[in-house]
Amino acid sequence: MPPRAKRRSARIRDHGHRPLSGRHRRSSVQPYAGCLQIRRGRARRLGAITQWILERKENFGAFWNNATEASSAFTEAGAIIGQTWDTTGLLLNRDNPDFLYRAPEEGIITWLDSFGMLKQSENPEQAVAFMNFMLKPETGGMFSNNTGYNSAVAGAAEFASDEYKKQFNEVYTAEALGNMWWWQADTPFFAPVCNEFVEIMTNT
């Protein structure tokens, strides 16, 4: 690792891959007063986190929004630890074995991309056949080899390249896969509060 990297870390933010949240029409929706109370509570916690970061900002190498910026945080900005997408971490490791990508003991943030089909699709049978094809372990392995993304299909790693298979088995142990935290749906009142403190952290 470069000498300048020894005392710095990377903090990142992820604005992508957020699940869509639906609006409920049932009468059991939490009243506005309750939402306001939750918003204020989250604002207090985010405020405390933001203050902690600002008091130690010299230890933060970079804030990023995409994979290119994330890679640069480590290769150019001197960061030695950070949170990142698995693809970024695995590709960094392939280029330089000094970079290791591992799941934290607290657990990994998890989401699942899915398929969608329009109601008026003219060829639903072909669409379903394509979905079934993509959900085969053999196809999952090919998908991972060509895109760098992990396949959610069980056994896909066995059909990937030896390099990918080695990385997958090192990172995603049975313990790591048994300690996943699903990404929560955003609420209308949370995103503005979160964005407010993100701007303070990055621009102060």
Rank of each mutant, 00 (worst) to 15 (best):
T173A: 00
T75Y: 06
P188I: 05
N123A: 10
A79Q: 08
G107A: 00
L92F: 03
P188F: 06
M142I: 09
Q83W: 08
E196S: 12
S21R: 04
G78Y: 07
I200N: 03
R44Y: 11
P31Y: 03
A43Q: 13
A62W: 03
T110F: 14
R39E: 14
T187K: 11
F159V: 06
K119A: 13
Q120F: 02
G47L: 05
G22P: 13
F143P: 07
R8K: 11
S161I: 00
V29A: 14
A103T: 01
N123Q: 09
L100T: 08
A5H: 07
A160L: 11
L90D: 10
Y164S: 10
P3K: 10
S72H: 03
I80A: 10
S151R: 01
N179S: 05
S9L: 11
G78S: 07
R56Y: 02
A67I: 10
E138V: 07
E58C: 03
E122M: 07
R11C: 07
W111I: 10
A73M: 01
H24S: 15
T187V: 04
W64H: 06
D86N: 11
F168P: 06
L54W: 13
A43G: 07
N59V: 00
V153H: 08
T84L: 13
Q184R: 15
N179E: 05
A10F: 00
G22H: 12
E105V: 11
F60T: 12
R7K: 10
G116P: 04
S151M: 02
E196Y: 14
L135W: 14
L36N: 14
T50I: 09
L20T: 12
P137C: 02
C35F: 03
E125P: 02
A33G: 02
L36V: 06
I200S: 06
P188T: 12
R25K: 14
L118T: 07
G107Y: 00
Y32S: 15
C35H: 11
A62E: 11
M131Q: 09
G47C: 03
R18E: 10
S28H: 01
M180H: 02
N203R: 02
E122R: 09
I109F: 01
G22L: 13
K136W: 06
D186S: 15
N66C: 11
V193L: 14
G47F: 04
M1S: 12
A10M: 01
T187M: 07
R42G: 09
M131P: 04
F130W: 05
D86G: 11
E196G: 09
A33M: 00
T139G: 14
A127E: 11
